[in-house]
Simulated scan of single mutants.
Amino acid sequence: MKLVFWTIGNARTASTRLRVHQYLPLLQQDGIAVECHEIPKGFLQRKVLRLKLPKAGHLFVQKKLFGPRTVSDLRRHCTRLVFDVDDAIYVDGEGSQRNQTRFAQITRAADSVLAGNPTLAKATADPKKATVLPTPVDTDVFSPGPWSDRDPNCVAWIGSRTNLKNLDLFFPAFEQHRKQFPKTHLVVMADRAPEPCPDGVRFEPWDPESEKALLKRATLGIMPLYDTPFTRGKCGFKILLYQAAGLPVLASPVGVNPSLVLGGHELANDSEGWVQGLARAFETPDDLRARGEAGREKVHRESSLTALYPKFRDLIT
């Protein structure tokens, strides 16, 4: 059997790296041949790639919304079409239904849809064909170090420039918290620094090794998130990443987040909730360690690469 993957990016693109490339070595170990192509932006390049599709093959398309002609061609060229989605890509701008229409077309044409959370699964044209499959975290790569090595004043946020705006929900509470705990600092690890960068906020450029080092150094991981139709489709990977590294979490109760954290004490509904959550974390350091250990157990059991791979393999083959 040969599986062909069409992805939205390469191995450095977060979604592609986590939802496709992590699985490829495991598929090959199981004797399954794989071929991976980044979807070109140009129409002609996409047409050439489409013509190279092996007939009677299995095709995995990662969250790319094509026009109806391309969807029809893909359906004719493969015996099994799998569509993967981990964002609310069906959300359109004001006055437009283009994305919603195309999302319905490809999820209707697919034999199976892998959805990163229940919200995305329900949004498909035929939810009966959709299976919820969280974004896996490799708990062998991301593992806790000794708690004694952590900086008791370090809070971590890891993400991309497109999500930096969500930190605006956190900054007022962080400023208030620092009046009582002035040594507390936030490390923002991304591909761009937040602008402006408030007092107590340190920027570190993202790279794989720096990410692992920060997760072993920090004491708390945060995921503030505005509540919008698009963010309700987020899959909460930041939370899973923090938990894998043994970090306790404080997050906005948006989308899938409440089902990922350990309970209401790890959620912040508003600015006052963030203030209280930070105070609780830094006033009870022993509780932080216990929360980190419990989160690690939860993510290893429910969302680790080891736990999810058999289900992924069975759904796409």
Score class of each variant (00 low, 15 high):
Asp73Glu: 15
Asn269Cys: 06
Pro205Leu: 02
Leu164Phe: 06
Gly292Tyr: 04
Phe282Trp: 15
Ala290Trp: 11
Thr124Glu: 01
Val132Cys: 06
Leu241Pro: 00
Met1Glu: 06
Arg192Tyr: 10
Leu24Ser: 09
Asp270Thr: 06
Gly31Cys: 05
Arg98Cys: 06
Ala115Lys: 03
Phe237Asp: 07
Gln243Met: 14
Arg17Tyr: 07
Arg192Ser: 15
Ile39Thr: 12
Leu49Glu: 13
Asp227Gly: 05
Val275His: 10
Asp30Thr: 01
Gly221Thr: 07
Gly95Lys: 10
Ala193His: 05
Thr219Pro: 01
Asn10Glu: 09
Pro253Thr: 05
Phe181Asn: 05
Gly264Gln: 10
Ala56His: 14
Gly233Asn: 06
Leu114His: 02
Gly116His: 09
Thr119His: 11
Val91Cys: 05
Ala130Ser: 15
Pro152Tyr: 08
Arg202Thr: 13
Pro196His: 08
Gly255Ile: 05
Gly236His: 12
Asp286Phe: 01
Ser271Gln: 14
Ala294Cys: 13
Arg76Gln: 14
Ala213Val: 00
Pro285His: 08
Gly42Ile: 00
Thr7Arg: 05
Gly264Lys: 14
Leu278Val: 09
Leu220His: 12
Gly263Glu: 09
Thr306Ala: 13
Leu215Thr: 00
Leu164Asp: 09
Arg46Lys: 12
Arg80Met: 11
Arg102Pro: 05
Arg69Phe: 10
Lys2Thr: 08
Lys179Met: 15
Val20Tyr: 09
Cys154Leu: 09
Asp138Ser: 01
Asp30Leu: 01
Pro285Asn: 08
Ser252Thr: 02
Ala121Met: 03
Glu209Leu: 09
Phe170Ala: 08
Lys41Ala: 10
Met189Ser: 10
Ala130His: 10
Ser143Ala: 15
Glu175Asp: 14
Gln176Lys: 13
Leu59Phe: 10
Val113Leu: 12
Leu240Arg: 10
Glu38Met: 13
Ala121Lys: 04
Arg280Tyr: 08
Asp138Tyr: 04
Arg178Val: 07
Leu27Val: 06
Asn163Ala: 11
Asp149Ser: 13
Gly292Trp: 02
Pro224Met: 02
Ala121Tyr: 02
Leu164His: 12
Thr135Lys: 02
Leu120Glu: 03
Lys179Ser: 13
Trp6Arg: 03
Pro253Arg: 04
Phe312Ala: 00
Ile158Val: 14
Ala294Arg: 14
Ala110Tyr: 01
His300Lys: 13
Lys129Cys: 08
Asp92Trp: 12
Arg313Tyr: 03
His58Leu: 13
Ala245His: 01
Ala104Phe: 03
Ala110Pro: 00
Thr107Glu: 13
Ser210Glu: 09
Ser96Asp: 15
Phe203Met: 06
Arg291Thr: 02
Trp274His: 09
Asn166Ser: 07
Lys55His: 13
Leu24Met: 14
Tyr226Leu: 09
Pro194Leu: 08
Gln97Met: 07
Asp30Ser: 03
